[in-house]
Design a protein around this nucleic acid. Sequence first.
DNA 1: GTTCGCATGTAAAGAGTTACATGATTGT
DNA 2: ACAATCATGTAACTCTTTACATGCGAAC
Lengths: 185, 185
Amino acid sequence: MPSQHGYALLGMLSLHPMSGYDLKELIDRSIRYFWKEGYGQIYPTLKALEAESLVMREVEHHAGRPDRFVYHLTEQGWEALRAWLMQPTFTITPTRHELLLKLYFGRHASAATLLPQVEQYRAIHEHLLQQYNAIEGHLLHDHPEYAADVPYWVLTLHHGQQICRAMILWCDETAQMLRASQDPA
Amino acid sequence: MPSQHGYALLGMLSLHPMSGYDLKELIDRSIRYFWKEGYGQIYPTLKALEAESLVMREVEHHAGRPDRFVYHLTEQGWEALRAWLMQPTFTITPTRHELLLKLYFGRHASAATLLPQVEQYRAIHEHLLQQYNAIEGHLLHDHPEYAADVPYWVLTLHHGQQICRAMILWCDETAQMLRASQDPA
DNA sequence: GTTCGCATGTAAAGAGTTACATGATTGT
DNA sequence: ACAATCATGTAACTCTTTACATGCGAAC
């Protein structure tokens, strides 16, 4: 039974066979908004997946280049991926939100010090939203060979967009409240 | 310079002096939606805060009860809290979202297996939203002595509410897409 | 000749969670 | 008697991140 990291790699390898290096690159260009992996995670995980016969490695030699170990899913790997997709998902509530923590104790700060932090939070989500929108616009054009996958990828983009929009609204409301609290009126 | 945990405890102690046990209890009843601490974190952190003279402990003896170590902020503690509130916030993007990971590879699963997972995600947020609403309704009534803090606490509730509403919308849209994909039509 | 990109990995440090240890009182 | 609550802490463990090690080729 692979770990969550294992399933992430199995999923990525379902797109096409890849090396550990490629996996890192692709993850950073695709699912990075909700999933990150480093080499320190990828290489040992690939080894474990191979030991479980869920992936197979093949060596590619290139003259005057480092060898590449290209991994592809085995039939058992496909099976494990499908089995995982069917399992109920443990939703981990992401705890630890520093800005909320600060706002919770906001009474002891001035609006002038809190407002920029809220504005920055807003800017981050505004920027993210534009990134999501841009990606959505190019998705089909950039990856015509994955047309069957694109609708699913769009779902994950919409998730991010919804959150960004919600956060922008919240920032505006929060900024208004903070401004009102400092208003002498 | 305290850690993030340290600031969370300083903030809590700004409400009123407390023991480590009380801190855990109060955190679990107030900021648990965006901040969690266990005893394994609280007690060592209190020790560190005391070593930095940001808090002071006083011993309370109770006949036939364990001693209580009640901590309160020192003047330096108040200063550290205010200084932290002014610092720019490092927004940590919470990475690792298993449901999105599954949906990303959703092509290899049937809508029938993905839909319940989306529905469960929706139910969680629906439930959370109702909790937030209930808390908001009782907040002032339950804590009249913290009337000056309540507006800030409400801000953090609204944050949660916005996210829940966004997620409910997203789930509905996602469910619709999944149903359409399995429709023979 | 120095840096950047390809390519694979290991080791150590840091953070976080969970389980355990203790011990008294109060309620069932 | 037995479980639960109050109360403080430690130890172990896992999980994650970061830094390091290596080496070649191509570009600047």
